[in-house]
């Protein structure tokens, strides 16, 4: 895949309309790299003038801040802001709600002011503008899909509608879990929990959430966050349902329905 980087474009004296912030999970996690590629394909197909930072990108600092290491967070943040401001970045889209939250809410006070979108919002815009064309390959029509709200998208930033609007574009049968939207149950990975084992308890949070998702009878669990993807996928495996039930990111669903895979 030929993905333009910001440094290449700048060298050519060009500037993109939007920066695609890939995030660490999107760059390194085997499963989420597929989401990154799916979203990049959608952007290419829609002829969006975008770029990525490539190897210049670094962690936003989200897990450090939430684990209490404010120094490390601010080191990451101030370095990233220098880089982004140096390139004159105005608009950012990312497929990670944690990056989204940090870039959008926590960078401004440190001098980083950008228009930040989560990929669910950007996909919704592209769909509304008619720039995403679904083909006959869309086999999600009428299929039961449940959507798991990411805390950092939902409660943290009030983005409940955009991901659902994207699923509606698939003409899928969207079934809600009992705990959804503002009462959605966390997958268990937020607040840097992704990077350590859970404290002692009587159940894993992702098992609790996966059971709820499975009880809807949906054959696809849609997610919009790399950590939720890992947690729910592990939950489905633990319940030995990985043959019948697939965990997919919104971008993967749309790319499939566009025949872009």
């Amino acid at each position: 895949m030929k993905i333009p980087t910001l440094s290449e474009l700048t060298a050519k004296g060009q500037s993109p309309d939007i920066l695609f912030w890939v995030g660490c999970a999107g760059s390194y996690d085997e499963r989420y790299k597929r989401v990154t590629r799916a979203f990049a394909r959608i952007l290419l197909a829609a002829e969006i003038k975008f770029a990525v930072l490539g190897t210049e990108e670094t962690c936003t600092g989200d897990p450090a801040r939430r684990a209490g290491n404010e120094f490390l967070f601010q080191m990451q943040a101030l370095n990233n802001i220098q880089l982004l401001n140096g390139y004159g970045v105005k608009k950012i889209v990312t497929a990670c709600p944690h990056c989204f939250n940090t870039l959008k809410n926590e960078y401004p006070v440190l001098g980083g002011h950008y228009e930040v979108l989560h990929h669910s919002q950007f996909l919704q815009q592209l769909i509304n503008e008619g720039r995403i064309k679904l083909t006959d390959a869309n086999h999600y029509q009428g299929r039961k899909i449940t959507y798991h709200d990411s805390c950092y998208l939902g409660r943290a930033n009030g983005v409940y509608h955009a991901p659902r609007a994207v699923l509606q574009a698939l003409e899928a049968d969207l079934v809600e879990m009992k705990r959804c939207k503002s009462r959605g149950l966390c997958c268990g990975a937020g607040g840097a929990q992704m990077f350590k084992d859970a404290e002692k308890g009587n159940k894993e949070i992702n098992h609790e959430r996966t059971e709820e998702a499975l009880s809807t009878g949906a054959t696809t669990i849609a997610v919009a966050c790399p950590f939720c993807m890992t947690m729910i996928t592990d939950g489905v495996k633990a319940k030995e349902k990985e043959q019948e039930v697939k965990v997919k990111d919104l971008a993967e669903l749309i790319a499939e329905a566009q025949g872009l895979t």
Binding site: T5, G26, S27, T36, A40, V52, G54, T55, E57
Partner: peptide, 12 residues
């Protein structure tokens, strides 16, 4: 993971 591998997703 090494920082140099960050952009490998585009090659795979």
């Amino acid at each position: 993971f090494p920082a140099a591998d960050r952009f490998n997703w585009a090659k795979e």
